[in-house]
């Protein structure tokens, strides 16, 4: 077990995002049923579950890609309707998608500012954007990128993921949602991305991390939420769970183990 992270538990941090009774159906398929989840500020909340458990559907509800059928979403205690990605972005929710959602034919600066370009007398303010992009990348210690004017097509998987995360930082998003950020990455690049996740949290941003990889989850998460068959079956601090418990919850929805039992 990695060391416990004492500071950030659900009890002593303010709740940034609260989902209550969120449900969503695609035709006859009930993808989400009555999901209740709190995402606290300044912490990594991991969302785990088997394939088809509803993780991706849930984050699509939060990021405005496909709004829920029922239930409420409260942002900083105020009820909100997130019915488009723009609304989510404006609230301060930025999603780093599994398929990255970057445009290969644009350069790093254009991608980082896509949808929120800085203007100067109606024209793009390239200088300001380029400086801000370069500064953000260096703040995040992303140093492997040759030039911020490189096309994203020429970047490696890890670099692309870094750019996507840097975009969230640049826009000062309070909540960064990451969908399988390490799924396609090698060892060194996974390391880089996980470090970035911790950097975000140290800067006070909240992270909602969707992942299959329990090793990654236990390494960076403060809290782990487990989904099964469209329901959220359990949320607990990382210190009070372990891999065996999480696997039990993912597969059967319940567990008879406690954290005292060695893994």
């Amino acid at each position: 077990m990695p060391a416990t992270r004492g500071a950030a538990t659900a009890a002593d941090t303010q709740t940034l995002l609260r989902l209550t009774g969120v449900s969503k159906a695609f035709g006859p398929v009930q993808a989400l049923t009555d999901v209740r989840l709190d995402v606290p500020a300044g912490a990594v909340t991991a969302l785990v579950g088997d394939n088809g458990a509803g993780k991706s559907t849930l984050i699509k509800c939060i990021s405005g890609i496909s709004p829920p059928d029922a239930g409420t979403i409260a942002w900083k205690g105020r009820e909100v309707r997130i019915d488009s990605p723009t609304v989510a972005n404006d609230l301060g929710i930025q999603t780093v998608y599994q398929d990255l959602a970057l445009c290969d034919n644009l350069d790093i600066v254009q991608n980082m500012f896509l949808g929120r370009e800085r203007l100067r007398r109606g024209q793009l303010n390239e200088l300001s954007m380029e400086q801000a992009a370069a500064q953000t990348l260096s703040e995040l210690a992303v140093t492997t990128v040759r030039s911020v004017r490189q096309l994203v097509a020429s970047l490696s998987g890890g670099q692309r993921q870094s750019v996507a995360i840097a975009k969230a930082v640049l826009w000062q998003s309070e909540l960064v949602i990451m969908d399988e950020p390490t799924a396609a990455l090698g060892v060194a690049q996974t390391r880089m991305v996980l470090d970035l996740v911790r950097t975000l949290v140290e800067r006070g941003q909240a992270v909602l991390l969707v992942s299959h990889n329990l090793l990654d989850v236990f390494e960076v998460a403060d809290r782990i939420a487990v989904m099964r068959q469209g329901r959220l079956v359990d949320v607990r601090p990382t210190a009070r769970t372990n891999q065996a418990i999480v696997v039990d919850l993912m597969t059967t929805g319940e567990t008879s183990r406690s954290v005292e039992q060695a893994t």
Binding site: S63, I65, S84, P85, T86, N89, T95, Y97, D99, L100, A101, L102, C103, D104, N105, L114, G115
Partner: peptide, 9 residues
């Protein structure tokens, strides 16, 4: 990437 553009609002 039309989908990326859509998600950027």
């Amino acid at each position: 990437n039309a989908e990326a553009a859509r998600r950027a609002g």
